[in-house]
Amino acid sequence: MSSISKDLHEFREIVAAEISALNDRVRDLERHVEERDNEVADLTRDLAAARSDIKALQERTENAEKNSRIPCLILSGGAMASRRKAVLGAPLPVDGSAPRAPTSDSSAAEPAGSGGAPVSARERGPAAARRAGEPEDVGGLVISAVRARLPGLSITEQDIDRAHRLPGPNNKVIVRFVRSGPGSVRDQLMSRRLELKGQDLFINESLTAGKSQIYRSLLEAKKTQMIYTVFTRWGHVFFKSEKFGTSTRVDSIEKLRELRFPVKQ
């Protein structure tokens, strides 16, 4: 019996030692897991803070760009088509023979003035000057188009800071005005642009890339009759669900998704 008791005692000691070792390992694992959990929690907080900072920076950048674009309007349509005339080559001789090659004599290449001296592009008139490479007067085109289609709206060269063409279809021209507050030419153009319905001139605000995507998405929603209308004011995008309903401003793609509108890329 004493031998059995001794063996049982030793077995209990061995089991107790192994259980103690296992407990130590479990406690060690729990400590490591807790440390990792704390690290994950810290990283999650840091990531959330970084995302918040990035969003704030994006909003500041968006607002800064929006404010810089407020003085600008985009005019397009047939009224903004270039008035440059195509430069035609020399006509073929009546007898059908090949045209003569140009000579090296400058007097043969250029019309002669008094005394046979070559005449400059400026002396040959505006049309020849345009052919010689002078830039198009886009500002003058804008002024004449607006005056012809919106009688009573006073617009002069002094109202325009600069104007130039944009790439793409529909003869787009971007115009930056000297003033953009209430009563300015820019403000008057936006207020009276609905008078241009059915004409060959369209006037729109210059939007940021983010606001342009929101506008395109809401315009698509209008086409599918999800909303009544979409419009912009001072760089912001609004829509109305009904004709006499209230206007809702959409400032982000997230807001667009919250309202269950499809996002157009």
Rank of each mutant, 00 (worst) to 15 (best):
E220G: 00
G198C: 09
P135Q: 10
E134G: 02
T208E: 06
E195F: 10
A132T: 05
R147Q: 11
Q199T: 15
S206R: 05
F244A: 07
N170M: 05
P167G: 02
S206A: 14
R233S: 10
D187G: 13
F202G: 04
V173W: 03
R179A: 12
K240T: 02
M190E: 14
L189Q: 08
E220V: 04
H236F: 06
D161P: 00
L153W: 02
V185L: 02
R162P: 00
E205G: 07
R162M: 08
G245D: 04
L219P: 00
G140F: 07
P151I: 06
P126G: 07
S247A: 13
V146F: 00
S206N: 11
A121E: 01
D161A: 15
Y215M: 12
R193Q: 15
V173Y: 05
V178W: 05
F244T: 08
A129C: 05
I155L: 10
R124H: 09
P118T: 13
Y228C: 03
M226E: 11
V237F: 02
K243A: 08
G113Y: 08
R192Q: 15
F238Q: 01
R131F: 05
D137K: 02
S154I: 05
V175Y: 01
D187K: 04
R162H: 12
S120C: 11
A145H: 03
R162G: 03
Q213S: 08
T248R: 08
Q213N: 06
P167K: 08
S120V: 07
S217W: 02
V250G: 10
P151A: 13
F238W: 07
L201R: 05
M190Y: 06
T229E: 06
S241V: 10
S184L: 13
I155A: 05
E195P: 02
I143Q: 04
A128S: 14
I155T: 02
G116C: 09
F239W: 00
F177M: 13
T224D: 10
A145T: 07
L207D: 04
I174N: 06
R162E: 08
Y215R: 06
E242S: 09
F231S: 04
D159Q: 07
A145S: 15
A112D: 07
G140I: 06
L218D: 01
P151D: 10
G168Y: 04
T246G: 11
A148G: 04
D159N: 15
G168H: 08
Q188N: 13
G115D: 09
D159M: 02
A209Q: 07
V146L: 09
G116E: 11
D137S: 02
Q158W: 03
K223T: 05
A129V: 03
N170R: 14
R162F: 11
R131N: 12
R233D: 10
P167Q: 10
I203K: 01
R249P: 00
S247P: 00
G198S: 10
Q225E: 15
V230G: 00
V250W: 03
M190A: 12
F239N: 02
M190N: 11
S180H: 13
G181Q: 14
S247E: 10
D200A: 14
P118I: 13
E136D: 11
G152F: 01
S191W: 12
G183V: 08
P135C: 09
G116Q: 11
F202Y: 14
L201P: 13
E195T: 01
